[in-house]
Design a protein around this nucleic acid. Structure first.
Lengths: 229, 229
DNA sequence: GCAAAAGTGTTAGTTTTACACCCATGG
DNA sequence: CCATGGGTGTAAAACTAACACTTTTGC
């Protein structure tokens, strides 16, 4: 082993996850009620500390898994926050990640054990530390990502209707989209498979279910494309 | 002061800067010859360690200033790299920043003292650690940023010709652009002021110099816009 | 007078947007 | 039979991409 760097400060490194989910009520995020001081009882993003023998991506996955039981989730690193007093206990820098999950798939019990709860975007409470800022930036990134990768699908169940997909995009972008234009754009991407099955819950007529074509989807992920909604 | 977090690992945090410059020979980056082990004598991004009482942005500015004498530079945080063995001396995570500077403005002596050197993009040597990856990602981000903010101007002298601007964009995007289409797009942004002055160095006829209109430029920075080149 | 870079518009093709009616079904 | 959401196409407008000739002036 080579000589260590001397005269350099070591710092606590945290990871905070902005976990987006989607269901019939729209876009949500998963928050946790902090059960230790300071700020005990306040709402917080789901986070933890980076271990010395751990890569950031792995830490983010570990933390997400601890609170939701989920693996194999779309996650992306966002930004490192480093204000001196952002955590009043001790100088800590925090790297934010966001994850997209299908609410129906998560382990509801795990979430309950940890006093975690889904909040609609409109009802998000004030968060501890600089977590509000982290969330705002995550939404911005999610909007941007949505326009260049069809990641929105990560938030939907395997089979979904066009209406669900439309509403997901409307929720992410928080603007109304034209139904016909949306459908023809999505179809032009050629990443959906229309099933022979209908969802009869939403209307008397029933609406076709789709799933996405993983192979074609992967291709699109490679070749930067732009989905202009 | 509240109780410290116990049982958590503290880690060295570094900042590495990808410093882009532009001159008549095209787009360049500033590298430094490492004068300590390991990898002594190899080329490296300009970097340093984050201090305990310092914010990442400030550290990036400090490091840039140390090696170039420059202040007041466009910088943007990019990504946190955290592979366990990325630095063989000691476990270190590094947050990358990129900066855009006008080569003519920098303090050439400072750069020489530190054995720093500008490299054309085509001639960048192999870099230490994971700095190659950092550079690749920075170029990608620069391309993207260029398309949504007119940051390219940061790389030019205060007064510049349309040709210089065109060549800058060509260098960043590494593709040829149509002169007429480019000029009309830039003009449609309405952020340039055409001066009464001509640059006579480039041709017998001389070409008009422009500077950009700071106020209108700031507006554009606020309202997300897209420059499709 | 000629070489070298500057400057300037038009057209065809493509993409985006706006917009409204009929369909199928369960109750 | 009717209320509800599902499904479908077209036309105008905006934008993008391709393309070539004239101007100026120092040598």
């Amino acid at each position: 082993m080579l000589n260590k760097y001397s005269d350099t400060d070591k710092i606590l490194v945290a990871v905070d996850c902005i976990i987006f989910g989607f269901d019939a009520d729209g876009l949500k995020i998963l928050l946790i009620k902090r059960d230790f001081e300071p700020e005990k009882g306040k709402w917080s993003l789901i986070g933890g500390f980076l271990k010395n023998d751990e890569v950031l991506d792995t830490a983010a996955i570990r933390i997400l898994n601890t609170y939701t039981g989920l693996n194999d989730i779309y996650m992306e690193q966002l930004y490192a926050y480093s204000e001196i007093d952002r955590d009043p206990v001790e100088r800590t820098i925090s790297v934010s990640y966001y994850a997209l999950i299908n609410i129906e798939n998560h382990n509801a019990e795990l979430i309950k054990n940890y006093h975690a709860q889904w909040f609609s975007m409109a009802e998000v409470p004030k968060l501890i530390f600089d977590h509000d800022k982290m969330l705002r930036n995550a939404i911005r990134r999610l909007r941007y990502r949505t326009s260049i990768k069809p990641i929105g699908f990560e938030l939907l169940p395997e089979k979904f209707t066009m209406r669900q997909l439309l509403e997901l995009y409307e929720a992410i972008l928080s603007k109304e989209l034209d139904k016909r234009n949306f459908i023809s754009k999505i179809n032009s991407l050629d990443i959906l498979i229309k099933l022979d099955e209908k969802d009869m819950k939403s209307s008397r007529k029933g609406s076709y279910l789709y799933r996405f074509d993983k192979e074609k989807y992967e291709e699109k992920l490679l070749n930067d494309f732009v989905l202009n909604l």
